[in-house]
Amino acid sequence: MNPNESHYADQFDRIQDHLDQNTPAAHIQDPELAEDVRFVRWLNHMASLSNPPEPGPLFTQQVLKKVPRSKRQQVWWAPVLTLAAALLLFVFWPRQAKQDERIFIDPSLLDQIAQNETRQGLYDYLTQTEFLLVSLREPTQQCTPDQVDVQTEKEFVKGLLLQHKSFTPQMDKLEYHQVREFFQQLEIILVDLNTLNRCSDKMELDLLNQHIQEQRILTKLRLFAQEIAVS
């Protein structure tokens, strides 16, 4: 450690000692040290007021999704178990159906299934849209140095717009009222993307990305997806 560094480290220790002993700044004789102590107290206080959002379960899910599948732990009995389950289903399922002739399913269960499917569909739609918007930030295909090739993204958008249409009637339900406005925002972005030329100016894409960032669309997407996943 050079002499300067050693001096600074000593100064740090002196500040820390006063903080640990809770010495009032007015009681410290060295005015510079008193200012340092006052400042670090203020800094600690400002840091304690900071309350950033937590990433939540969606963060874990996304990390795990990105882990290469082939690298996941394989257990020897998993394929055996799957095969056994399939065999059992094959053997027992048709016979039971024949005995009953009619299969009765409780209507409330059907409602539940439909609701779950909507939720799962919404979740998939949100995560796929997120994937698309993230990939737009750094497009890899170029037409010319100033133009990017967005054909793949346009194809992807078409699918998302179809999904979007299928959810539109659901959005009138009370439980989705919070998402409705956000869905309209998303639709506008997707339509904008769909109307881009295959070879689009980088500037055009930058503007769209800027809008996405300013409106915090990705954060909202993650929050809604998270809410749907845990609801």
């Binding site: 450690m1 300067n4 560094e5 050693s6 600074y8 480290a9 100064q11 740090f12 220790d13 500040i15 200012e35 340092d36 400042f39 670090v40 800094l43």
Partner: peptide, 21 residues
């Protein structure tokens, strides 16, 4: 070294203090 961290923190605190002061 821990001393380097302390020295860096002290310098950082002084820089912040000067700027905000």
């Amino acid at each position: 070294a821990a001393g380097t961290v302390k020295a860096t923190l002290f310098q950082a605190v002084r820089n912040l203090r000067d700027h905000l002061g």
